[in-house]
Simulated assay, not measured.
Amino acid sequence: MNCYEIVLADDHPIFREGIKRVVERVPDLKVVGEAGDGLELMQLLQRISAQLLILDLSMPNRGGLDIINEIREINPQLKILILTMHKSRGYLYRAFSMKVQGYMIKEEAYANLIAAITTIRQGGTHISAFMGEQFADLVAKHCRRELHFEIDRLSDRETQVLALLAEGKTDKEIADLLFIGVRTVNSHRRNIKNKLNINKGTELVSYAVRNGYI
C-alpha cells in the first residue's frame, strides 16, 4: 500500500501525539516526521520527503508563516495545511496569499482533520467552517475591487504582531506567544506604524480591526 506521508510541525508534543493518533487511524496515512520548532522543521524537510505538512503558525525559532517560502524551496510539491489557534482574518489572508492548501482551527482538528487531509490529497482546498464566511467576504471584496492589500507591505512577523494587537493582546502577551522579546515587539509596532503611516497606537488597533485582522 502506498501511504500518504505527512509531517507534523507544532511546539506542543502532547497535541502532536493526539494529531498523530487521529491521522494514523486511517490505514494509508502515515506520519513520517515531527518537528517542535521552525529550525527543526527545516532540518527535517531536508532529510525526508513527504506529501503534506501540517503546520502550526506560532512555533519558536521562526514562526510558520515566516518559513513557508523556504519550505517551498526545499520541496515545491509539498502541500501545506495550517493548523492554528489564530482566528483572525489577517492570518487567513496571509496564509492563502502564500498558496497554502488549507487553514484549520485547532479546536476543529479532532473532528475534521481527516476530511481536510482527504480534500487536500484530492487536489482541493480546505477552510475551517469557522473561517469560511470570512474567506467568502474576502473573495467578494476582491471581486468588487474594494479590498486593498496593505498586508503586502508588512513582513510575516509584522502581520502576526498586528493580528495579535487586533485581538487586544499586550506587548508582553505578544512576545510570549511569538517567542520574542518585548523590545522586539515594540520595534515591530514602530515599523508597522511607519509602513501604514499611522501615528497613534489606538489608530493602529482600529486599523487592524477595520481591515479584517480579527
Score class of each variant (00 low, 15 high):
residue 94 R to K: 15
residue 86 H to L: 04
residue 11 D to Q: 02
residue 117 I to F: 02
residue 89 R to G: 11
residue 5 E to D: 04
residue 120 I to L: 04
residue 203 E to I: 07
residue 189 R to K: 13
residue 47 R to M: 13
residue 146 E to P: 07
residue 67 I to E: 08
residue 51 Q to K: 14
residue 211 N to R: 02
residue 105 I to L: 09
residue 14 I to E: 13
residue 42 M to G: 05
residue 169 K to I: 00
residue 190 R to L: 08
residue 94 R to N: 13
residue 151 I to M: 10
residue 41 L to G: 11
residue 114 I to F: 07
residue 98 M to Q: 02
residue 207 Y to G: 13
residue 172 K to D: 08
residue 95 A to I: 05
residue 7 V to K: 01
residue 129 A to T: 12
residue 6 I to G: 01
residue 160 Q to T: 10
residue 5 E to N: 08
residue 114 I to D: 03
residue 117 I to Y: 01
residue 141 K to T: 00
residue 161 V to W: 02
residue 158 E to M: 13
residue 195 K to W: 01
residue 74 I to E: 14
residue 30 K to I: 10
residue 56 D to V: 13
residue 131 M to A: 00
residue 135 F to A: 10
residue 119 T to E: 12
residue 209 V to K: 14
residue 3 C to G: 00
residue 158 E to Q: 11
residue 13 P to Y: 02
residue 106 K to I: 12
residue 38 G to R: 09
residue 43 Q to G: 15
residue 188 H to F: 14
residue 175 A to M: 06
residue 112 N to L: 14
residue 199 N to L: 06
residue 55 L to N: 15
residue 71 I to P: 00
residue 11 D to I: 01
residue 96 F to T: 13
residue 76 P to F: 06
residue 107 E to W: 08
residue 29 L to T: 05
residue 150 E to L: 07
residue 157 R to G: 03
residue 125 T to Y: 04
residue 161 V to S: 00
residue 73 E to C: 15
residue 195 K to Q: 01
residue 7 V to E: 01
residue 199 N to R: 05
residue 50 A to T: 11
residue 143 C to E: 15
residue 70 E to Q: 15
residue 94 R to Y: 04
residue 68 I to T: 02
residue 90 G to E: 02
residue 102 G to M: 05
residue 1 M to R: 11
residue 198 I to T: 14
residue 42 M to D: 07
residue 207 Y to D: 14
residue 202 T to R: 07
residue 148 H to G: 05
residue 99 K to C: 06
residue 205 V to A: 06
residue 50 A to I: 09
residue 198 I to E: 09
residue 130 F to T: 14
residue 20 K to G: 08
residue 24 E to I: 12
residue 18 G to P: 08
residue 21 R to G: 09
residue 13 P to T: 09
residue 43 Q to P: 06
residue 164 L to V: 10
residue 19 I to G: 08
residue 111 A to T: 04
residue 160 Q to N: 12
residue 50 A to G: 09
